[in-house]
Design a binder for these strands. Structure first.
Length: 834
RNA sequence: GCCCAGGUGGCGAAACAGGCAAACGCGCGACACUUAAAAUGUCGUCCUGCGGAUGCAGGUUGUGGGUUCGACUCCCACCCUGGGCACCA
């Protein structure tokens, strides 16, 4: 009678039905509490790989679980549709990026649907749609109006492979390669658009209002790199009125300066270099420039530099110190110049050693008697050789010297950040046009809001020249000035970094078709902020920092009344190939989810991804491991569809029923707690145990159960239909978020009303969840010597008595007197002898 | 070098407000069903020793110490693996 479990058949059937019934559409404004569950949207590369499944199917399970718990859950999906691969495909294969992207999206929609997730497709967002990117332009103009978007000439990172500039965040690794293609980047001086993320640097360091992994917080804090110090001016001897600023976090060591260093690219270098030093300085600059372009791989690089033949004056004590250029000083950090304090900075120490410069101790280590240092002393100490600060502990000296510099007018306390403003210009076609016009008479003119969107022309010509098609598209580039109407204005031809799209997409899901504003504020008041966000850790200092910045700007624009876009964040791990290596086509260890679905069905693939390891750890794909999950689902099918064990009032039945109910409630408790914490692997393990248990009840008619429960077995008992049904019902409800298709199929097959996905999550009875009988462990001196079955509520005195009466305990006492007996109620007794 | 995460059976792992180490799954072995195989089911499976084992004893959570009646869990030192940062003044 019972038909076989046929995953593919039932999965397609239910997916179609659910979508037709709009089962997962999250209505705005529902009396139920809302829950906005968001998973990072995919880039439409054209193929949904197992990594997408790993990111998405557990989060779908978690979202479904929330829904069953009574929340009105929004679980949207969209596509991060702008970006380089589309354009590269256009150049290589002559397909228009739009066509390439849309075809891919079409294919991926189909693949995504095969996952059986509860996405609300009515809210879908596609970022290359003008309806979307017009709001990128709108935001850009708002930022421009507030001075948060500006254009500046700056040394920027350029990827020669992708032919575009990159944000600092997109340059990675020791040898500074492009985050996308791995090509070493080069520096170029270009006029580019920036967003002033540094204006929010301090606020971005405040994580007190969000529940994000420590790891991400540390990554972001490191990236922002706040340092508190002093910037002060060093006059140059013999150059009246000339001075340069240095930044230091150690003003307490300023009296120990015995030289000063300028970055080789520092603008004053040429001016200050003495004629007789010019040749050598030029040579060094050339070498330094090459070194930054070509590999700087040599790990322990020699710290070298060149004296420029000029002297700076330490304003604290009017001592002249020689000025060097050295490439260990970076133009891009601080002021591009430093005080050289070899006694208290290891780099300066090595430099001073090499060039025979004096090393003057100004912060004395404890017990220091004036001996020479063998390395820089970095810790706190007592101020010496520091004029009026002598004798102070160095932290106080820090403040005193900082104050003195301010009072005497040559320095000020300053906070420096490693974070730079966000470079958003990209010299590429497939992105949001920057809505700016350059006019010969008016200069830089923003496109009026009424003229948005600035459409990306579809008739672009793709040439392999490395130049953006927009630059030679006259119809796009040549434009009337919106301000004076002048004829010879030109549009900005750069487009925006695609991280702009993802900085605010979570808001667009609220009202994806709103033509009036980026999102409907009324819906926003209901849905926002995002309650749970999930995605990969690789976006920690890019997307996740940008979207926090963007939300703070939105707050200042009055669009939202909170400062953080996502309350909770969870980073899932990465699925590796069966060989434990990162999946890649060249290794041939790629697991194709479509193929797995064909072989085992969606539920098995989902189930295995959740079962194999903790979600945040990822790990190798085990082709045999997935079969275990598949077998389990078959077992579930059999247990539920085959006839229930005979009902009846045979002797001993009550004990079986109690055990069945206890197991059901204990499982509900475990699974509920596990799912609340995204511990899918142990949730599924608990459900497997429960399934095996029910199967055992069937097989033995209850006798096995009683044996398990420590009861005497007699007669031929079984669970009654009612208790059995309750257990099966609980099992199916708990399966619903994890393996939604088989759960729905069995739910309706057993005569329950469609849809299981509209049912409430089962509640457990704490009393039933607690076991009646427990194994009391009896130890002697911490070693297990005996185990006895006792009632869970056994008294301490009884437990103690049982332990002391135990024969096995007696044997191990060896006649020694009992010194102490420790009782952990309901768990363990430890008899201590000495 | 610094910061973070982690080291538990043949494998993926579980247990940590300190209390039965190895749940669940894979693999392996035996058995049942079968003409046979697959599928399925049942039982067994951390290691060592005790001629035999539903028995007894000992050992075991990277290494070495410590705290404790009791440590995978807490503390100290060290080793290894993975990830991040790395001249940031």
């Amino acid at each position: 009678m019972a038909q076989r479990y046929d995953p593919q058949g039932i999965e397609q059937k239910w997916q179609a039905r659910w979508e037709a019934d709009r089962l997962y559409h999250a209505p705005d404004f529902d009396p139920q509490p809302k829950f906005y569950f968001l998973t990072m949207y995919p880039y439409p590369s054209g193929d949904l790989h197992i990594g997408h499944w790993y990111a998405m199917s557990p989060s779908d399970a978690a979202a479904r679980f929330r829904r069953m718990q009574g929340y009105n859950v929004m679980f949207p999906i969209g596509f991060d549709a702008f970006g380089l691969p589309a354009e590269n495909a256009a150049i290589q294969h002559g397909i228009h990026p739009y066509t390439w992207t849309m075809d891919n999206i079409e294919g991926m929609r189909r693949q995504l649907r095969s996952m059986g997730a509860m996405w609300d497709w009515e809210r879908e967002v596609v970022t290359c749609d003008p309806d979307y990117y017009t709001w990128n332009q709108w935001f850009f103009l708002k930022m421009y109006e507030r001075g948060l978007a500006y254009r500046a000439l700056a040394p920027v990172d350029w990827c020669p492979q992708d032919n575009t500039t990159l944000a600092r965040e997109q340059v990675v690794g020791e040898n500074r390669v492009c985050e996308r293609c791995g090509t070493p980047v080069i520096k170029k001086n270009l006029k580019q658009w920036f967003l002033k993320i540094t204006a929010y640097a301090d606020e971005l360091l405040d994580f007190s209002r969000i529940d994000w992994p420590e790891r991400v917080q540390v990554l972001q804090a490191n990236w922002i790199g706040k340092s508190v110090g002093v910037e002060f001016a060093l006059p140059v001897k013999g150059h009246a009125g000339k001075s340069f600023a240095v930044f230091t976090t150690r003003p307490d060591t300023a009296y120990g300066m015995t030289f000063a260093v300028l970055a080789p690219e520092h603008p004053l270098v040429d001016e200050l270099t003495a004629p007789d030093r010019q040749h050598e300085v030029e040579a060094y600059k050339y070498k330094a420039a090459r070194a930054s372009d070509i590999e700087r791989l040599s790990t322990e690089k020699d710290r070298d530099g060149v004296f420029i033949g000029a002297y700076a004056v330490n304003p604290l004590n009017d001592e002249p110190v020689p000025i060097f250029v050295a490439d260990y000083v970076l133009l891009t950090y601080g002021t591009g110049a430093i005080q050289g304090v070899p006694a208290h900075d290891q780099r300066d120490f090595e430099f001073a050693r090499k060039y025979g410069l004096p090393i003057r101790v100004v912060v004395a280590p404890p017990g220091w008697r004036g001996e020479e240092l063998t390395q820089a002393y970095l810790a706190e100490g007592t101020m010496v050789n520091s004029g009026p600060s002598d004798g102070l502990p160095s932290p106080q000296g820090w403040q005193r010297i900082a104050d003195e510099m301010e009072r005497r007018g040559f320095g000020r306390q300053k906070v420096n950040y490693r974070l730079h403003d966000w470079l958003i210009s990209r010299q590429r076609y497939w992105g949001t046009p920057i809505p700016i016009v350059y006019c010969k008479t008016c200069g830089t003119v923003p496109v009026p809001h009424a003229d948005l969107p600035v459409l990306l022309p579809m008739d672009a010509e793709f040439r392999p020249t490395g130049e953006s098609p927009l630059r030679y598209h006259d119809g796009f580039r040549k434009v009337r000035c919106p301000q004076c109407g002048g004829e010879d204005a030109e549009r900005e031809t750069d487009t925006m970094d695609t991280f702009i799209d993802s900085s605010w997409y979570q808001y667009r899901y609220l009202s994806p078709h709103d033509g009036e504003r980026p999102f409907d504020p009324q819906a926003g008041r209901y849905w926002l902020p995002v309650d749970q966000y999930t995605g990969g850790i690789e976006h920690a200092v890019m997307h996740l920092l940008y979207t926090r910045f963007w939300t703070k700007v939105m707050r200042d624009l009055g669009l939202v009344d909170f400062a953080e876009p996502m309350v909770r964040l969870y980073n899932q791990g990465i699925v590796l190939g069966p060989d434990g290596q990162r999946m890649s086509k060249s290794r041939g260890n790629v697991v194709d989810p479509d193929e797995q679905v064909r072989q085992y069905g969606t539920d098995t693939v989902r189930g295995y991804l959740m079962f194999m390891r903790p979600w945040d750890e990822g790990g190798p794909w085990d082709p045999k491991g997935i079969e275990g999950v598949h077998r389990w689902l078959h077992r579930v099918w059999t247990v539920v569809t085959e006839p229930a064990p005979a009902a009846g009032r045979a002797a001993g039945e009550a004990a079986t029923e109690r055990e069945v109910r206890h197991r059901a409630h204990a499982t509900i408790k475990r699974v509920t707690e596990d799912l609340e914490q995204f511990r899918f692997n142990t949730a599924i393990a608990a459900l497997m145990e429960f399934t095996n248990f029910l199967q055992g009840v069937k097989a033995t008619g209850g006798q096995g159960v009683k044996a398990m429960a420590g009861q005497e077995v007699k007669g031929t008992p079984a669970a009654s239909g009612k208790v059995w049904d309750e257990a099966v019902q609980a099992l199916l409800l708990m399966l619903a978020p994890l393996v939604p298709h088989i759960a729905e199929e069995l739910w309706t097959q057993t005569g329950r009303p469609y849809s299981i996905h509209q049912q409430a999550w089962p509640k457990y009875d704490a009393g039933l969840a607690r076991a009646e009988m427990v194994t009391l462990v009896i130890q002697v001196n911490g070693k297990v010597r005996d185990r006895v079955q006792v009632r869970a509520d056994i008294s301490e005195a009884d437990a103690k008595r049982l332990a002391l009466e135990s024969e096995k305990v007696g044997k191990f006492l060896d006649g020694r007197p009992v010194a102490e007996v420790i009782v952990v109620p309901g768990r363990l007794v430890n008899v201590v002898v000495r």
